[in-house]
């Protein structure tokens, strides 16, 4: 049965909401320089802790930076980390999971042992331990998170590839002398499409959360502009009114991004699970 996943996701209210939220935040992040006259690192001429005004929509922080500007550029960090981890870790999952299923034997057993071992390691702890010493910037965070995230996906990809490679069209391709790389790239990965996207959304969600969490703990690169870091600094001045336009917007922006990713991921997963698809689809287009 053919399922149009894009229509499944855009057809459900939750999926639509999720996509709109992600689209909106991406648009804001991309057009950040157009939406603010300030530089996120530069100090403005207004005093510290100023309330929202015409010049500074969300006021200024403790070192006289414009909060609205830092909020916009913070979206870039979050999205970059989310997107980076999604791509890198899915790439590793496909590479290891796919080739393990294709080759089998000792190679397969070796990688599955590595996968089991990494899954047994509590990732939050390892990230904190490493971050404490390295104070990672966005690129290093992407690398660290990807190295801990890929094994879960590799298991899924391996299982899927194992069943897909027994299909008729794959056997046909093999009869025509197709190499394993051709089979993987042209016959298996296209069939994995929706699963890969669901995986990427999940990875991105975790990555955005972990980056904010690490910054909130104060163990990421100090020069990085991040929502988590904004919340960490703003929390120190909780008795002043500044939390209303400093802490709250950062927290809401972060939450909205995560909600957007959750909703999209949830509706895609519902579409992927035939048992959960709504009854009406049975009589719809096939």
């Amino acid at each position: 049965m053919h399922v149009d996943y894009w229509r499944e996701v855009t057809g459900s209210n939750l999926g639509k909401t999720g996509l709109i939220i992600i689209g909106l935040i991406t648009a804001l992040a991309v057009s950040a320089p157009l939406l603010t006259p300030y530089d996120p690192h530069e100090k403005t001429n207004t005093g510290a802790f100023s309330a929202p005004s015409k010049d500074h929509w969300l006021g200024t922080n403790d070192v006289r930076q414009d909060i609205w500007t830092r909020l916009l550029y913070g979206a870039r960090t979050s999205l970059a980390v989310g997107f980076g981890v999604a791509v890198l870790s899915t790439f590793l999952s496909v590479l290891i999971g796919g080739t393990s299923a294709m080759f089998g034997g000792v190679y397969d057993r070796f990688w599955m042992r590595v996968v089991d071992a990494i899954i047994a390691v509590p990732s939050v702890i390892v990230i904190i331990l490493v971050a404490t010493y390295l104070r990672p910037n966005a690129a290093l965070i992407i690398l660290l998170l990807s190295l801990l995230t890929w094994p879960g996906g590799a298991r899924v990809i391996r299982a899927q590839t194992l069943s897909l490679k027994e299909r008729m069209h794959v056997s046909a391709a093999r009869t025509f002398g197709a190499s394993w790389s051709h089979i993987l790239l042209h016959h298996i990965i296209p069939d994995l499409g929706p699963i890969l996207i669901a995986m990427m959304i999940q990875d991105a969600r975790r990555a955005v959360f972990m980056e904010a969490g690490l910054s909130f703990l104060g163990i990421s690169d100090p020069s990085m502009i991040s929502w988590g870091k904004m919340m960490q600094f703003a929390r120190a001045y909780i008795y002043l009114d500044v939390w209303m336009w400093w802490l709250l917007p950062a927290g809401i922006a972060l939450s909205l991004t995560l909600v957007g990713l959750s909703l999209t991921g949830f509706s895609l997963e519902t579409a992927l699970d035939p048992r959960l698809r709504e009854e009406k689809d049975r009589f719809g287009k096939r």
Binding site: L14, V259, L263
Partner: peptide
């Protein structure tokens, strides 16, 4: 319930705590 809890699920725990 579904949309409410899905929405809540997006909130990072430390932000819920602060709120």
């Amino acid at each position: 319930l579904l949309s409410g809890l899905m929405f809540l699920n997006g909130f990072p725990d430390f932000f819920v705590g602060i709120l």
